[in-house]
Design a protein around this nucleic acid. Structure first.
Lengths: 231, 231
DNA sequence: GCGTACCAAACTGTATACAGCTTAGAATAT
DNA sequence: ATATTCTAAGCTGTATACAGTTTGGTACGC
């Protein structure tokens, strides 16, 4: 009957969601009292949660001036994509070294399972969730908890831009049928199953790199969306 | 005349140092009131700092039960070494792609500069500082702020074990003269300068891997040191 | 018109109080 | 002796108060 989730956890989750979605505009000062009011709590737990978000890379903190939303700097976004490559490719390498065949097949099966949804899905958020889930499962195969932790953090911080990017892709090439990500995922898995770590890594690297190249444009779009009159 | 560093920053730094040095024993519950007394502050800023340390991976948090020191699990330490490989090797790859020759040479020069100190140094802490500084400069060459941030965090969390490891190496092979790390560093730099990313990566990977293999034994030693009667 | 000094409002930083939960230990029953 | 319940001490979670700082605006001097 124990309350497993505390108030500060709830607040932290809310704020993280808000930060991920850029409910705070880039470089905007964050008003603690306002948040306390809207989240129905006092400033103390709010500040605790904000501190965690600083360490997560969502916010920055200036002594005496409070918390600020992270800036939306194209270069920093590119950095995040590169960090993803670092984490995911090393995980892939480790996976090829030591993952059980059964576990690998399970991830391949996951791709098969979601394929109908993935192909038909029009909800960008759902789409991104499935994509992240695949990449996360892939990294989990490495059996390295730290790499998994790092990927989760990167996903959180890069999600907003990836969402913008996906929206752009959909609106541009709508009705093209087969999703390019899905086939890229399949290619990676097939190389892993065949025990070709170098080829798998190359495929994964190319897959992420392709998205990375669109990031700068996505950041531009994100700005315009964040600053339109109607939220 | 502005006070650039706040109280909570001071507390955070103190606590991080304590956590890195395992002033809190693995899995030990952390008493906030005690800390407040010893750091001469109230519980509020203490808790803010503790929350940051949770996000940094130094502590864990259980709702209703407070903060706990991270456990000292050999597997988790091995994970950290693998994460280092991920970060540093990708950084190296990026460095070979885009770092200016001048900047690369500067890091090589840094190795030359510290060589006398490095060879003569008997202080394990200083030695580790120089080693970390080299690896950090190497990652900085990649011009990726995120990779740099990640390496700093990993260094903080792995430092204690690396220190134990270095102590063991020194006591075992004392008076052997040339330091194996230094020559490994030189090899990496020389491959980078020659524009051989694959060979540089292989050398760096092997260098970190060698330390990783000793980590389990170092954890064992760490345990025995942490739990001896006299601190 | 431009820059500076000053003032008030707003906000952050921290201490403190207290309610509620957790936990360890004593007392009791089996 | 062992298991169980109860109790009290200690600790965490959060609200609130207030001191000190930052900030934006206004009045004044140049």
């Amino acid at each position: 009957m124990a309350k497993t989730v505390s108030n500060v956890d709830r607040i932290y989750e809310s704020l993280r969601q808000m930060a991920a979605d850029f409910a705070f505009k880039p470089d905007q000062r964050i008003n603690e009292s306002e948040l306390a009011l809207s989240l129905k709590a006092s400033r103390t737990p709010i500040r605790e949660a904000l501190n965690r978000l600083v360490a997560d890379g969502f916010l920055t903190f200036q002594s005496g001036r409070g918390f600020y939303c992270r800036s939306l700097d194209p270069q920093r976004i590119l950095d995040l994509y590169e960090a993803r490559v670092a984490i995911e490719c090393e995980a892939l390498r480790l996976t090829c070294q030591r993952a059980k065949k059964k576990k690998i097949d399970a991830v391949s099966n996951y791709l098969d399972e979601i394929e109908p949804d993935y192909a038909a899905c029009t909800d960008v958020i759902k789409l991104l969730e499935m994509d992240e889930e695949f990449h996360l499962r892939l990294v989990k195969l490495s059996q390295n908890a730290e790499l998994e932790r790092m990927l989760r953090n990167l996903n959180d911080r890069i999600r907003y831009i990836r969402m913008i990017d996906l929206k752009r892709l959909r609106s541009k090439g709508k009705g093209t049928g087969a999703n390019p990500s899905l086939s890229a995922h399949r290619l990676v898995m097939s190389e892993v199953r065949n025990g070709k770590p170098a080829r798998a890594e190359k495929a994964l690297r190319a897959h992420i790199q392709r998205r990375r190249e669109e990031a700068t444009e996505a950041v531009r779009t994100a700005y315009s969306q964040l600053y339109v009159p109607t939220g």
